[in-house]
Computed example of a mutant assay.
Amino acid sequence: MKSVSTTNAPQAIGPYSQGIIANGFFFSSGQIPLTPEGELVEGDIVAQTNQVFKNLKAVLEAAGLSLKNVVKTTVFLSDMNDFAAMNEVYEANFGDHKPARSAVEVARLPKDVKVEIEVIAVFE
């Protein structure tokens, strides 16, 4: 196993890694809308989801991967009414690539953000 870390995404704020490479797979920790400097992106679900994707791309890049390598995502929303707007940003980032996905509404997310996304990617 190998830990992945980059200063181009928010640093882990607990006992975990930004990502782990194991057995040909990359597993990201959930990314929330924090800037690499640790500032919370306020605003609507679109603004927050855009920042989450910036963070995901940075961590994937640090592992030598891109969104094209993603095979599974999990999306956590604080309000399922935000799904359609989140999905527009999601689709714009993934384009024709359509990894498997789960999307769930949760009672609360860290720092009371609206969205958190984690990914699993594969080295090819």
Rank of each mutant, 00 (worst) to 15 (best):
L67I: 12
Y90K: 13
E39P: 02
G30S: 11
T6M: 09
A63S: 14
F26C: 07
D79R: 04
L109T: 06
V75K: 08
D44Q: 09
Q11P: 01
A84S: 11
F83V: 04
V75T: 15
S78F: 00
I120Y: 05
T73L: 11
A107S: 06
V115W: 02
V104P: 00
M80E: 05
N81Y: 03
I32V: 12
M86G: 00
G95A: 09
V119C: 11
A22I: 05
D82H: 11
E37T: 15
Q51R: 14
N23S: 15
P33Q: 09
I13F: 13
F123L: 12
K114S: 05
A58R: 03
I21A: 14
G38W: 07
A9E: 04
I45S: 14
S102Y: 02
G30R: 03
V75W: 03
A92P: 01
L40M: 09
F76I: 01
N69D: 14
E116I: 05
I21H: 12
N8H: 07
V4G: 09
L65F: 12
L65I: 13
A103V: 13
M80S: 10
S102V: 01
K114V: 00
T35W: 01
A85G: 02
A103S: 10
H97D: 03
D44P: 03
G19A: 09
N50Q: 14
V115H: 04
L56C: 06
N50I: 09
E91A: 15
Q48K: 07
N55W: 02
N93H: 13
T74V: 10
E42A: 15
N81T: 06
V52F: 11
Q51G: 10
V122H: 12
V46P: 06
I13W: 13
K54I: 05
V4F: 03
K57L: 01
N8W: 01
S78I: 02
A85D: 14
G95W: 06
V46S: 08
A63K: 08
N50F: 00
N69R: 08
F83G: 00
F27I: 09
E39K: 14
T73P: 01
N50R: 14
T74D: 15
M1E: 07
P110K: 08
N69F: 05
V75N: 10
L67V: 10
K2N: 11
T7M: 11
A63P: 05
Y90T: 01
P10Y: 13
I21R: 13
V106M: 13
S66C: 12
V52K: 13
L60Y: 09
A58N: 02
Q51N: 11
N23R: 11
M86P: 00
S78A: 13
P110G: 03
T7D: 10
N69P: 02
I117G: 08
A58Y: 02
K57R: 14
V89P: 07
V104D: 02
G14W: 07
G19F: 03
V59Y: 04
D112T: 01
A85P: 00
V104C: 09
G43V: 05
M1Q: 11
V59K: 04
V115N: 05
A103W: 02
G14P: 08
G95P: 06
K57E: 08
K2S: 10
S5Q: 06
T49A: 15
